[in-house]
Simulated scan of single mutants.
Amino acid sequence: MSHDRTVAVGGAHPYHISIGPGLLDDGERLASTLRGSDAFVISDDSVAPLYLQRVVDALARARPGLRIGHWTLPAGEASKTLEGFGRAISAIAEAGMRRDATVYALGGGVVGDLAGFAAAAWMRGIDCVQLPTTLLAMVDSSVGGKTAVDLPQGKNLVGAFHPPRAVLADTGSLRTLPARELRAGLAEVVKYGAIVDAPFLDWLEAHADALLAGDDDVLAEAIARSCAHKAAIVERDPFEHGERALLNFGHTFGHAIETEQGYGGLVHGEAVAVGMVQAARLSERLGLASPADTARLRGLLQRLGLPVDAPPGLDADALVAHMRLDKKAQSGGLRFIVWDGAGRARVLADVPEDAVREVLRG
Rank of each mutant, 00 (worst) to 15 (best):
D170W: 10
A342E: 13
V110I: 12
T252M: 07
T6L: 12
L334D: 06
L334G: 04
A206T: 10
N156T: 05
D197Y: 05
W203A: 07
G172C: 08
G144I: 08
G125C: 12
L186M: 13
V129D: 08
Y15F: 14
L266W: 02
A105D: 01
A232E: 15
L52K: 11
R236W: 01
D209V: 13
G116N: 09
D354F: 00
L348V: 15
L212D: 06
V167D: 02
E77M: 04
V7A: 07
A12D: 14
E235G: 07
R87Y: 03
D127I: 02
L136M: 14
G10Q: 12
A120M: 08
V158N: 00
G332D: 11
D326E: 04
L24S: 10
S79K: 03
L246W: 03
M1W: 01
V196T: 15
P352Q: 12
L30Q: 09
G264L: 13
A228V: 01
E284G: 11
D100H: 12
V56D: 00
V189H: 01
L247F: 05
E205P: 06
A148M: 00
R67D: 12
F85I: 00
A222R: 06
A75H: 10
P352C: 13
V167R: 00
R344Y: 08
V111R: 05
S46G: 13
L50R: 13
L157F: 05
A349D: 15
L301A: 01
R124P: 13
L247R: 11
V196C: 14
G242T: 01
L211G: 01
R99D: 09
R357C: 00
A295I: 04
T72S: 12
A95F: 08
M138D: 02
K191W: 07
G11T: 09
D38R: 04
G343E: 07
A48G: 05
I92D: 06
F117P: 01
H70F: 11
P74I: 04
I233V: 15
A271Y: 04
S283E: 06
G145S: 06
T176F: 00
A316H: 05
D350T: 10
R361E: 15
D317E: 15
I337T: 01
R324G: 05
K230H: 13
R99F: 09
L288D: 02
D44C: 12
V308E: 09
R346K: 13
R244Y: 06
A224R: 13
G96N: 11
P312S: 12
G116I: 07
R175D: 14
L114W: 05
I19F: 08
G11C: 09
G109V: 03
G76M: 03
G269A: 08
A75W: 02
L82I: 14
R61A: 14
D209Y: 00
L177D: 08
P164M: 05
Y104V: 03
G154A: 12
G299C: 03
H70W: 12
R67T: 14
E240D: 12
H229W: 10
L34R: 07
A119L: 01
L50N: 02
W339M: 14
G313L: 07
F336R: 03
A279C: 11
I257H: 00
S173L: 04
R298L: 09
L106N: 04
R183E: 02
Q261R: 10
S90R: 14
K80N: 09
R344G: 05
A342W: 12
Q130G: 03
L131S: 06
G185D: 12
I68C: 03
L73Y: 01
S90K: 14
